Simulated assay, not measured.
Amino acid sequence: MPGTSRREALALGFAAAAMPMLAGGARAAVLKYTLNPVAIAPGVWTIYGLPEPITSKNGGAIANITIFDTSEGAVLIDAGPSHRYGEALKAKATELTGKPVVRVYLTHYHTDHVLGATAFESGTVSAGKTLTADLKKVGNDLTNAMYRVAGDWMRGTDIPTPGREAAEGVETVGERRFRLLPLAGHTSEDLCLYEESTGLLFPGDLVFLDRAATTPDARIDTWRTSLKTLGGIDHKLLVPGHGPVEAGTRGIAQTGRWLDTVEAQINDGFERGLDITELMAVPLPSWTDGIAVAKYEYARSVMHLMPGLEVARLPRLTRV
Rank of each mutant, 00 (worst) to 15 (best):
Y296Q: 13
G24E: 14
P53K: 07
I54M: 13
A74W: 00
R300Q: 14
A29C: 13
P160D: 08
W223R: 05
P307T: 12
D158F: 08
V149G: 01
V138R: 00
A212H: 03
R319K: 13
T229E: 12
L131P: 00
A18H: 14
P240T: 09
V75N: 00
T143E: 05
G290H: 09
I47D: 02
T66A: 06
T132S: 15
L181I: 15
L135M: 09
T111G: 06
H110D: 03
T198P: 00
R272I: 05
L193F: 06
R316L: 15
F14D: 06
L50H: 05
S122F: 04
L201D: 00
A213Q: 08
E271V: 08
W287C: 07
D134T: 13
V239W: 01
L131G: 03
L305D: 04
T225E: 15
Q254M: 10
F270E: 06
G151A: 10
A213I: 11
T225C: 04
N140A: 15
P283E: 11
A150T: 07
Y296I: 15
F270A: 06
D78G: 03
L35Y: 00
S126C: 15
G86V: 02
D134V: 10
R103L: 10
G273R: 09
L22G: 11
E246L: 04
R179N: 11
K295Y: 05
R257G: 05
T143D: 02
P283M: 11
T143G: 02
I65C: 03
K90V: 05
G163M: 08
Y109Q: 04
M21I: 12
L35H: 05
P160E: 03
P216L: 12
G251Y: 01
T111P: 07
L191W: 02
A61E: 02
S286Q: 13
T94Q: 12
L89V: 04
Y109N: 02
E195C: 12
P81I: 02
L274F: 10
R84W: 04
D112N: 12
F14G: 04
P42H: 01
A61C: 07
L309N: 09
T107G: 07
I159A: 00
V311M: 15
Y33P: 01
R224L: 12
P2Q: 09
L10P: 02
R164S: 07
E263C: 06
G199D: 08
G13Y: 12
M146Y: 11
G185F: 07
T255F: 00
G256W: 04
E175Q: 13
R6M: 15
G25Q: 13
P100Q: 09
L237I: 00
E246A: 10
A11S: 15
L237R: 07
A213R: 03
A264E: 11
L317P: 02
A117P: 05
G49H: 04
T66V: 09
A15K: 13
A28C: 12
P42I: 00
D275C: 10
A93V: 02
Y33N: 08
T255M: 03
E165G: 04
K92A: 08
G248C: 11
K236M: 09
E52F: 07
I291Y: 05
A150N: 09
Q265I: 10
N64T: 06
G174D: 10
G43V: 05
W258E: 03
Y194A: 09
I65T: 05
S71T: 14
K137A: 14
L10W: 10
K137I: 06
L35V: 03
D205S: 07
